[in-house]
Design a protein around this nucleic acid. Structure first.
Lengths: 169, 169
DNA sequence: CTCCAATCCTTTAAGCTTCAAACGTCTCGA
DNA sequence: TCGAGACGTTTGAAGCTTAAAGGATTGGAG
């Protein structure tokens, strides 16, 4: 099999002299959570549906917008680069799950939209996906979830400032 | 340039009917934070040091263990697959930043260790890296950081259960 | 001692990802 | 109206990532 085994990114710091900033430890912990959840979802998507996470993510975006989305809009929402989408969309078109058309009003724009088959396939995966997420968040009480939402909102704002300062420059 | 621009994964749900579980929203928010921080670090590492995040991560692991680490141990700590390491290590050896030797006691085992040059290079990057992290966590008060650490610890435990249930099966 | 399962690593194929450069299209002001 | 710049997408090169299969080595059960 040779997949990832018993990972623990925080081992890095937990065993370090602990001279590190609390912020660094916090980031490491967030990163561990994110990787753990993401890897699990990735594996289950593959095992149960033969799908990859990027493909699922793309379908999820389109599922919310019946009329479809321009590729650039899609790349913003998915937080991936434009160049990335070209091949991803290509493969999903081949699979028959989305269709791609040139916009009628702007010939630069490519609009991607779910097909009926794609919508059906997505619905099944989405239900499983939601169960998995709930399962992995099971250890948290509702008020803790609430608290986390707020704290992460602050962090997000702070991180976004740094992020955007980049693109602006 | 064509890089990621003004991303927002949560756009997905913020504009959705909000019929989704709170857990799903929480996961999306965590994922957004993680991506924002990670992408920023990745870009700055590239811009200021011509480095990639996986390479930095590998150096960081080795920097904590003077004697070096077996590749399998390294892959556990970095939470990546074994096959991944082979090429990564290869490139870092070429760069002269690490060295790889066969273990004296077990000829299956390859031990990777920082060179002097590697250690020096890493130190410079690590200092910058820590500054960046502190910058991006700047919006949080110390007691909020503390709170986040605890809540994320719970989540982590819960996610790890799901994750390990997988590998065990 | 002999074999066989477990362990460590590498290889391969397929796919994802980025950045940077190039191409076609559009918009707006001179 | 025509040209400059902005915009949307694609292409290309390099690297990362996984899962799966294969080779080498080890250590333990008979």
């Amino acid at each position: 099999m040779n997949s990832i085994s018993t990972p623990d990114a925080e081992t890095r710091l937990d065993q370090a002299p602990a001279a590190d900033h609390p912020e660094l430890r916090l980031w490491l912990r967030l990163f561990t959570c994110s990787t753990l959840v993401e890897t699990t979802i990735r594996r289950r998507l593959r095992a149960e549906f033969g799908e990859t996470l990027p493909r699922f993510d793309l379908l999820a975006q389109l599922a919310k917008v019946p009329g479809g989305l321009a590729l650039s809009e899609l790349s913003k929402r998915m937080m991936v680069s434009n160049g990335n989408l070209t091949a991803l969309v290509e493969r999903l078109v081949e699979a028959g799950w989305i269709e791609r058309r040139t916009s009628a009003t702007d010939r630069r724009v490519q609009v991607a939209r779910l097909t009926t088959a794609g919508r059906a396939a997505f619905r099944k995966m989405a239900a499983a996906h939601e169960r998995w997420i709930v399962e992995m968040t099971g250890g948290l009480a509702p008020h803790e979830t609430e608290q986390l939402m707020e704290l992460l909102a602050k962090w997000k704002a702070s991180a976004r400032r740094a992020f955007e300062g980049e693109t602006a420059a």
